[in-house]
């Protein structure tokens, strides 16, 4: 059998394959350059960018948990100006689609960042982070409210022709409500899910193990939750869903495609297996060949319920 067709489409954006990195787990790409062939990625999603540089939260910021980790980084990043000046020139010539994850404390900040990035050649898509659980302003404030989600998405949509993705939080009662709000306001695709809010306690001191008290749970522990939400959202909307949450093997990725994901993002697994993106890409390819599936799109949303 010939090499399977791995191309997928997000809005007007065509990806050579459906393997993406998740924001905040792959830096600005260059950190992995000696370990991963960056040009084989379908898309590269960079660390969330805010209007001004952010120092982030005090340490401790991470704690390992059973098959997962909690983080409360607080969106430390170089800021929009330094990103465009220092990071974008390295990323621009790379083969994968470049997705810039953005975060504002106010609607106006999101709009300003999106407008500035819209003028930048080499930026293929904007991913709205309305789901960070670790910052006081912005993030979840938008993502947990369908009216705020809708208004913010519409305002950003109005200033950019780039592919617009909205990254949803699992920390809501019904994620499909947020999903529909974002899509009705003009999102080209949805990233499902961000981290789950969690807590870890030190028995000796009886203090939280994170300085921020709570943090976002990620890693293999959250995969079943992410998979369920991808399935729910994919049935509720008619735009592509990007599945993310606990993927660390090609088998995990294939589960997400069957549940309805058009593409997948790999996050925490980059930390414990720096070549995981390549391993997953090779595994998906072999799986399609072995199962006689010619196109990855023939696999998407094929969950059998009867």
């Amino acid at each position: 059998m010939n090499h399977p067709d791995l191309t997928v489409t997000l809005g007007r954006l065509k990806l050579a394959n459906p393997v993406m990195t998740a924001s905040g787990t792959f830096g600005y790409g260059e950190e992995y350059a000696g370990i991963v062939d960056l040009n084989r990625l379908g898309a590269l999603v960079v660390k969330g960018i805010s209007l001004r540089p952010r120092p982030g939260n005090p340490p401790p910021r991470i704690v390992e948990t059973a098959a997962g980790m909690l983080n409360a980084i607080g969106l430390q990043n170089v800021g929009l100006t330094a990103f465009i000046r220092d990071k974008l020139p390295y990323l621009r010539p790379l083969a994968p689609a470049l997705v810039v994850n953005i975060l504002g404390e106010t609607e106006d900040e999101y709009v300003e960042i999106a407008a500035a990035l819209s003028d930048q050649e080499g930026v293929d898509a904007i991913e709205l982070n309305i789901s960070c659980p670790n910052v006081a302003a912005g993030g979840l404030v938008f993502g947990a409210d369908p009216v705020a989600t809708s208004r913010l998405t519409a305002r950003v949509r109005a200033v950019t022709r780039k592919t617009l993705l909205v990254k949803l939080t699992p920390n809501v009662t019904d994620i499909t409500v947020m999903a529909r709000a974002a899509v009705d306001a003009g999102a080209d695709g949805l990233t499902v899910i961000n981290t789950l809010l969690g807590l870890a306690v030190d028995l000796t001191t009886r203090r939280p193990r994170l300085a921020n008290v709570t943090g976002g749970l990620s890693g293999p522990a959250i995969k079943p939750v992410a998979l369920r939400m991808v399935w729910q959202v994919a049935r509720a909307v008619d735009v592509p869903v990007i599945g993310v949450g606990g993927i660390s093997t090609w088998q995990d990725a294939v589960e997400f495609f069957i549940a309805g994901a058009t593409a997948i993002q790999i996050g925490t697994a980059n930390f414990f297996n720096p070549t995981v993106t390549m391993n997953v890409l090779e595994g998906i390819t072999a799986f399609l060949i072995d199962s006689g599936v010619a196109k990855i799109t023939d696999l998407i949303g094929t969950l059998r319920l009867t």
Partner: peptide, 10 residues
């Protein structure tokens, strides 16, 4: 978590 300058946890 990563050692590579990416997770910002250290």
């Amino acid at each position: 978590a990563c050692g590579l300058g990416v997770c910002l946890g250290c």
